[in-house]
Design a binder for these strands. Sequence first.
RNA 1: GGUGGCGUAGCCAAGUGGUUAGGCAACGGAUUGCAAAUCCGUCACACGGGGGUUCGAAUCCCCCCGCCACCUCCA
Length: 607
Amino acid sequence: MSVLKLKNTYTRSVETFQPLDPEGRRVTMYSCGPTVYSYAHIGNFRSFLMSDVLRRVLERNGYEVRHVMNITDVGHLTEDDVADAQGEDKLQKAAREMGWDPYKLARFYEHAFVEDARHLRMKNYSGGEAGEPELHPRAAGHVPEMLELIQKLIENDHAYVDDSGQVYFDIQKFPEYGKLSGKVIDDLEAGARVAVGEHKRDPRDFYLWKVDPKHLMQWDPHSDKGWDAADYERYRQLLPDGVDERIKPGFPGWHVECSAMSRAHLGSVIDIHTGGEDNIFPHHECEIAQSYGAYSTKVPGPHGAPDEGAPRHSFARYWLHGRFLLVNNKKMSKRDGTFYTVRDLLDPRGNERDELAVELEGAGFKDGKVPANVLRYALISNQYTQPMNFGVDLLKQARASVERLQIRYDKLREAVGDDTNPDADETASDKVLELVSKADEDFDAALNDNLNIPNALAVVFGAVNELNTMELGLAEAREALRLMESFDGVLDVLDRSARSGLITREQVATWLDSGTLQAKAKHLKHWAEAPDREQLWEMIEAGQLPMFEDLAPIEQMDAETIELFAAIRQNARKVKDFATADAIRDDLKRRGVQLEDTPQGFRWVLG
RNA sequence: GGUGGCGUAGCCAAGUGGUUAGGCAACGGAUUGCAAAUCCGUCACACGGGGGUUCGAAUCCCCCCGCCACCUCCA
């Protein structure tokens, strides 16, 4: 079994993963989640999906992962550090523009985010985890914990309160500020863009608590004003003596939320912290400074690292950052029309992106919609340490790749059937067993090599190619199916529903010869709904086929229906009426059913 | 200006000193009534350019060119 190695931004090197848990089993992971002031875009999701792949890889390695991803719903300013007077909370700004209450806005976009996350099969939003609020903490619900941290920083002399009642982190008290990002102090001071706030002692000081009477979301640290009752209760318990009297009503700074929430839900030190590359500076740099200033959090350098055993003044041991997603090799830009939200791609027309729908239709996407699993594949298909150049071509390639995997998977499923075959006792050949176990190991090795997805995909397609050249027995098909499911445990791009079936030539022959065709037809759901079913049946008997538009909506294309039309088509083929046969196949295709002729019979796949 | 990174065949993308990565696209062939799927083959003795080190360089060193990101809100 290969060993998991990850590129740690903190040391700029690839380190062996080793959990802090003495038993080596539990892993704690915190990912910077969305700021819910608009729909998340695909760049956001590339980063979130990186964390999703990572947690799945950790699980493959046998770890028990606790993955927290926050929701930022307060405090993230438009100009965070630039000027104290001008920065406006992103949520407040969006809320003002839409004429909404900021809380309503936050919930609206949080809901949209969760929807998108589910479409893209993020594990922390599926199954039981979706219902665990502590895995998806909201910043506005953690003001008590943030004030606790702020108070701690003031007491430790790592933060100060200015004349207006705001609180700043005192950068000079943390000499290691800049270690994560590799920024040197001189660079920052030379940069004229960092304005020195009136009350700041150092241009790099960042605020922990902001005072702005116009802000709609604010909390009074000295009374219950502005508080949710339960939060206030918790605040009183955490800080019976309150906070520094000079702190005025206001709201928390952006950086402080992650330090506070990660501590609240994962403990004071954690294994892994992830985010986008832009989070490195200043966000994560600030988190490290705060957590250390308040709680002296440190973790030992892992085995094999140059600083093995020596304390790192960071509350997370591994810092992983995804590179940006680009479009046309540039950052996404609304002005250039290269800005895509997840929902834009999943349903362009439903999101007023008609031009995008047309472009996608031109690329062969039905109704201009990109299937969610194709989008997921595209967004995880290269290594997170490389920038991704997104575009319609990438989506086309992703679709082709997913389809290739899906076809192999469907065929294996058909071969295995419901697994009650009496031949189930037969054993797979060594050749297949070796292929499966080697592919699984190679897949692990690629993923464990700092999540090298391209290499992992090379293993997947290599295995698929080999399997395609083999005649598989039942037991072998079962092994191969397991392999595909193993791959998909990380990739999660397959449609695992029974979406295909086989109809043998013998079955068709029986229907055609014994008159059961008509009996079968009577069972069709849509038949009863047809305006004149006798007439329709007469048409079929006369060799005239009704168009399916006249019959059933796609939802009703079940196995029975498909079998009927496969039989009718075979009847036409027998008398060499290929025009009719092809018309049926084309019609089925329009109804979302692909019909294929194979040596054994007929194979159908729901599209 | 400072920092980091990238440039691999038509496209995407692994590979950091020595045996065909892989995918997509295109084309040819096998198979098929036609398709679909699948297989075989071709494009592919590819590595931005120029020097150098080496028995041997996509990989190491030097110089140059082009592109991108970060340093300001951003995943």
